[in-house]
Amino acid sequence: MKWSEIKIHTTNEAIEPISNILHESGASGVVIEDRQDLYQERVPLYGTIYELDPDNYPEEGVYIKAYLPINSFLGETVDEIKESINNLVKFDIDIGKNNVTISEVNEEEWATAWKKYYKPVKISEKITIIPTWEDYDPVNSDELIIELDPGMAFGTGTHPTTVLSLQALERYVKDGDVVLDVGSGSGVLTIASALLGAKEVHAFDLDEIAVKSTTINVKLNGVQDVVSAKQNDLLKGVDQQADIVVSNILAEIIVQFTSDAYDSIKPGGYLITSGIIKGKKELVKDDLIKHGFEILEINQMEDWISIIAQKPEQRG
């Protein structure tokens, strides 16, 4: 079988939405090549998840690569991908050069070559993410291991927005908590919440493929007894009360469900938001305050922001 590699030259801001578009179009895995990764001094805690070759990186912006099977619908699929990417400008997302190129690769080359990008990576004090094919021995007795198949879709958990979310969950999840993961993607935040001691985790995503991905990864990590995953539009119709709501999606989407999140969180509970490009920090911060939240933390990694807010305890 032959595969077509689609390569998009775009911006860091557009990585998440374009990756989503590619996955929804049937892509089996996404590779992101950002020249900043070549020069950034990584804190040893985070390790490295992939080997870097300078020749693979653009001078500015990023390359997003994905793989689609070559069939009679390929041309139509590529056209739909291009149209969806162009539509992102309606959401005030900078898509940069937006150059799209197509090339052909053999299945044997693709199936093995992309795996070289993924190695075990320590995300936080406790959490380490490993690809399913890697052998890994925990360094510490309290280390939490999350296994993911990066080829399944929706990320490997090592994008800065996900790292910020995982670090926040590690600080705030307590034994017996109820957690809602809004926009669960691969399920990495859902799994982490369960491993950190939550008694119930409810994962929601509008995309049916994401729900399946979450379900598979949840079983892979043995936390299916405390997790439920379902297709849902943000928190619409959800009456579950939670100690924590976590959401790693675009700033423009976060502000669409701030009110529902407030209603879903118990007094004294927390809203952990990420996926916020630096320029949209004030948009989300102001919206959270407007809906009654108190801002506890604003954290940054590269160009990305996470905000942790609290619903005040009931007074009187």
Rank of each mutant, 00 (worst) to 15 (best):
W3V: 02
S4N: 15
I8A: 12
N12S: 15
L22I: 01
S25R: 11
S25N: 14
I49N: 13
N56S: 12
E59N: 15
V62S: 10
Y63T: 06
I64A: 07
A66P: 11
G75N: 15
G75D: 15
T77C: 10
D79R: 12
E80Y: 12
E80N: 13
E83F: 12
S84G: 06
I93V: 14
D94M: 07
V100Q: 10
V105R: 09
W114R: 03
K115H: 02
K115G: 02
Y117I: 09
Y117K: 10
K126F: 04
K126N: 08
D142Y: 08
I146V: 07
L148C: 01
T161S: 10
S165Q: 05
Q167S: 09
R171S: 10
Y172F: 14
G176D: 08
L180R: 00
V182Q: 00
G183F: 01
S184D: 03
G187C: 10
T190N: 02
T190F: 02
I191Q: 09
A192T: 03
F204R: 00
A210Y: 09
N217Y: 07
V218T: 15
L235H: 00
Q240P: 00
N248L: 06
A251H: 04
V255H: 05
Q256W: 05
D260T: 02
S264E: 00
I265Q: 00
P267W: 09
Y270F: 14
G279Q: 10
E282K: 05
V284K: 01
K285H: 11
D286C: 01
G292V: 02
W304G: 00
S306F: 04
S306Y: 04
I307F: 03
P312S: 01
P312N: 01
E313M: 13
R315M: 12
